[in-house]
């Protein structure tokens, strides 16, 4: 285990150093993030302009969802997007060979090799927004609630990762045609608003097929003290299922890669 931790430390240290080579890029990423957050808060404020409610959510409560969305978007900018789009490059350029020949788990490597620090401020901003909006919404955060909230945030992150990873892994078959990562970004974007703001059919899809509900709405419900126990259990179950699924899919894809690549 120590080897994996040290590897992770070196992975991220080198990734950080690599990106600091391009200061202008970092600045642009930061500006883009601030712009995107301002944009979505503006959209939200339009919805709530005259004190209206959105799917039974008040303005402050919906801001908690927005905060969680910002947090998860930060996580995906920091880890998911850079790593999982690198899989496509690895396959196209054949450098996946180098990864497969390292005595370390290949899913670990391709999932966590890179860390893009430009996403970190977004994570911080998301957390600030969550705490601020929760207190405005009158949520009382006990230690227990906080722990469950963190757990559910983690559940959301795992689900998002697993979905994204499976799509990225399909690049082993569809080498060039598939820039998969943008698809999941769009799915995540639908989590900007509480699931109950969507029509009933979509709500069902977002709960069971593409579990967007567990990315943002459920953690928000936990924070606001209105979560239903069955949803938490279902979320936990789905996270484990999706993670194991991503693992199985990766091993399957590798079997294909190693028997077909030249």
């Amino acid at each position: 285990m120590g080897r994996y931790l040290l590897s992770l430390k070196r992975f991220w240290a080198t990734a950080l150093a690599g990106q600091l080579e391009y200061q202008a890029n970092m600045l642009i990423d930061l500006l883009a993030m601030v712009g995107s957050l301002a944009g979505s808060i503006f959209v939200l404020s339009l919805f709530f302009g005259q004190g209206r409610e959105l799917g039974g959510w008040s303005w402050e409560a919906a801001l908690v969802v927005q905060g969680i969305y910002t947090f998860l978007d930060g996580v995906s900018s920091t880890w998911l997007r850079p790593n999982l789009s690198a899989i496509v490059t690895h396959v196209r350029e054949g450098t996946l060979d180098f990864v497969l020949l390292k005595p370390i788990d290949s899913q670990f490597w391709v999932s966590l090799r890179i860390m893009a620090p430009a996403g970190l401020p977004e994570i911080g901003l998301g957390l600030v927004l969550i705490v601020w909006a929760a207190s405005r919404a009158g949520a009382s955060l006990s230690l227990g609630t906080s722990l469950v909230a963190v757990l559910m945030l983690f559940v959301g992150g795992v689900i998002l990762y697993a979905l994204w990873f499976v799509i990225a892994a399909t690049s082993i078959w569809f080498v060039k045609t598939w820039n998969a990562t943008e698809v999941l970004r769009a799915v995540l974007a639908s989590g900007r608003f509480p699931v109950s703001a969507y029509p009933p059919t979509l709500r069902l899809v977002f709960t069971l097929v593409l579990p967007v509900a567990f990315l943002t709405t459920v953690p928000a419900e936990v924070i606001l003290g209105r979560a239903a126990m069955p949803m938490l259990v279902l979320g936990l179950f789905l996270a484990v299922l999706f993670f194991l699924g991503s693992r199985a899919f990766w091993l399957f894809a590798l079997r294909y890669y190693t028997s077909a690549s030249s």
Binding site: R3, L6, S7, K9, R10, F11, A13, T14, A17, G18, K102, P103, I104
Partner: peptide, 11 residues
């Protein structure tokens, strides 16, 4: 830097 990554990976 690449060497430090390899060193960690190979323990």
């Amino acid at each position: 830097d690449s060497l430090s990554v390899n060193a960690a990976v190979y323990g």
